[in-house]
Each structure stands twice: as structure tokens, then as C-alpha cells.
Design a protein around this nucleic acid. Sequence first.
DNA 1: ACCTGAACACCGTTCAAGT
DNA 2: ACCTGAACACCGTTCAAGT
Lengths: 223, 223
Amino acid sequence: MSTMAMKDEDPRPALSRQRVVHAAIAHADSAGLDALTMRQVAGMLQVAPMALYRHISNRDDLIDAMIDVLFGEIALPLGGTDWKTAMRDRAMSLRDVLARHRWAIGLMESRRRPGPANLRHHDAVIGKLRSAGFDIAMVAHAYSLLDGYIYGFALTKMNIPFNTTDEMAAMAQDMFEPFPANEYPNLAEFVTDHVMKPGYDYGEEFEYGLDLILNGLEGALTA
Amino acid sequence: MSTMAMKDEDPRPALSRQRVVHAAIAHADSAGLDALTMRQVAGMLQVAPMALYRHISNRDDLIDAMIDVLFGEIALPLGGTDWKTAMRDRAMSLRDVLARHRWAIGLMESRRRPGPANLRHHDAVIGKLRSAGFDIAMVAHAYSLLDGYIYGFALTKMNIPFNTTDEMAAMAQDMFEPFPANEYPNLAEFVTDHVMKPGYDYGEEFEYGLDLILNGLEGALTA
DNA sequence: ACCTGAACACCGTTCAAGT
DNA sequence: ACCTGAACACCGTTCAAGT
């Protein structure tokens, strides 16, 4: 077997910053932030841990790059539609990005060196609100309220320790078991009559709150 | 020197679950979640790491206990006042607790075995809303919206990579430096004309959003 | 009963080599 | 130019001792 043939059969394409960043995102998506270690990312790519440092300067630099890829996945609020539709679509898109990349929720707004997709996203959102007649103080109100809600909902949903009605039922059992019966009657009623009902999905609450906020902002804008 | 005198001079009181939990909270408050390691908490208490395992079963059990202490610090919405005042006070109190214990933001609603203070808090909030005329579906809307916003605002504020106007100015410099001038005009205007103005404090946005949400819920309740 | 020390299987990152 | 292996200073947790 010639060395030429050996090369053709080499299952490892050359490493690159792009390949490292995308492997890291895929790994964090499936295994979580705790599993996002240099050693595990290197394992995904079948290289020694230290090979990564040729392409990224350290773990924080890797996370910077991963977050900018995610900002690129958020649909930008474009020129055509009114501000309310644009902000609603952008909120739903950001919600979807955070659901796909749960590990990123606490990291999106924490970058000391935001990348181009990050800056472009914030520029587009602010521009859309400004051209709809929001003054700068009102932009600050609206952005803080919307993003507070979007990230907070994503955080709460991510951390909720159950996903299905069955899991909730099991957890409710464990939850009340150590305490006297009827010690927490309002919570018990809420859990049994609402959360444990078939078809309950916490995720569906998102749009109720989003629309309440958008309507409130509209009222403040026209006042 | 007698062994009796040695005992009197021993600077280490006996370990207890309470002492471990409170030392861990104090350490996480000052050094952050990454520094909340068994070895560092043990160091605080001047014992060997393994001494902690006599009083807690593992790191997760320690965090469970820490979170329940924090729930105990939130002012309960009591009987006297109307629901809006009660929810506003409770939101401000939770905001303050999260500001004192920033490491806890992602952990408060993630416990598979919530402690008594946790359950008592949720029971009181739900009870207050129910007795004000919210039906169960509306309680779910209100709770999800309020807590989404409160936790999300705390998360964003915690992660924002600057605290003072000076830090923001330094960061703005670094932020736009790698890109062509006027590449992000809306963001640049927002930063220079609002965020970098003397007296700017992101934290002050909290009450604007909170009141907008409470007014929206009031409208939905009376409708 | 309560605490300890060594050990195991992990981390991120530095450094000096290897090809 | 690009990747590697050993090493260092850390983790949480198990186990067998120590007092």
C-alpha cells in the first residue's frame, strides 16, 4: 500500500478554526456546557487536545466564536414590516436559537469582544425601533424588557427539571412527599389542576407574555 | 500547656450542615459559581475536603440547601396589600436576592427536590394571585411572565461585561475598533448618546418593565 | 463519631519535541 | 506548519485509615 493511498484514506480532514468552532457547538448542543471541554472537543475531531490551540487562543476565545455563529442564526428584523411584527418575529427566532443551543443562554450577552454577527444584530434591532419612532430612552426600555423576557423565559424553560407530564407527576410525588399533606395547598392545586393536565406545555406561555409586552410598548409609544 | 487549654484555643468550631451551607453561600457570593468547589469551601472552613461529606451527600445536595436558604430570603407576598403591590414588592425582593447571590440565577428554578422555603414561596405567590381573582390559567400566564422577566433581567445584568461608564467607554473602544467606521451606526449612536452618558444605570430599567407587565396583567384580569 | 490522606479519573494550559 | 505527549496545578468523589 503506497503512502499516497494512505493519505487518501486518512479520515481526518485538516483542522481549521471553522471546524473546531462547529464541532464545539454540535458537542455543546448534545452534551451541554459542562461537557464543553477542550479534551472532549478534541476527541470529537480525533486530534490531541493541544492541536486545538493552533486555531483558537483559549477556551474563552472558542466560546466567543461559537456565540457569534449563534447570533448569525437569529433572523434579522428587516425593513419591510412594522416594528411590532419585526420584533415579534425576532423574539421567536431568538427563542428558537436559544432552544437549539441551551448552553448559550447565559453567554450571549456576556462577550467582552462581540463578533460581527452580534454587532450587526443589535444594530438592526435598534435601527428598526428608531425608524418606527422610538426615541433613544424608549429603545433602551424596549430592548431591556424584550431581551430580559426572552432570555429569562429560555433560562426558566431550560432549567425546569421536567419535560413531560409523566416526569412532572413523578416529580410532584417526590416534591410533596417529605412534607405534611396540604402544607402547600395553592401549589398543590396549581400542579394537579394545571401543570399535570394532559397537553400542558410550559413553552406555550412564551407568546402570551411576548404579546402582552409588545402591546404595552405600543401603548407607551403612542401615548 | 494542657490538652484542655489546646481545646479552648482551637479556632475551628465543629462542622455542621448549617455551617457548610452558609460558608458555601458566602464563598459563592464573593468568588462566583466557578469557585464553588468542595476543596475551596473546605478551605474556607479550614477542614479537609472530605470532612464536608459527613454533612452533605454531594455537591448537588449542597447546592439544593444553598438555594433553599435563598428562597427564605425573598419577602413573601402577604395578606394585607392588593395583588399588584404584593407582586411588585415580591419582584423587587427577588431582584435584590439575585443581585446579592448572582451565582444562583440559573439554579433557583432547577431543583428536582425543592426545599420547604422554595415550596412555601411558590405557594404564597399562587395563593395571593388566586385570592385576587386570577383563575388557574391566568396564574400560569402571570407567574411565567413575571419570573421570566425577573430572572432574565438579573441574568442580563449579571452578564453585562461592564459596570461603570468608564468600563463601558473602554469596551466600546475595543468593540468597534476591529470594524470599519460607521459599520454599525444605530448601535454606535445608542452607545454614545445613551449608555455612555453620565448617570446611566442599566439596573434602573428594571422597574419600567416590571410596571409595564403588572399594568398589562391588570388589564387582562379586568377584561 | 468525626475527620483525614492517598488515590482515581477528570479539567485547562504550558512547554518542549516530533514530523 | 501543524500536531503531539508529558507535565503542572487544579476538579469531585471513593476508599481505607486514623483519632
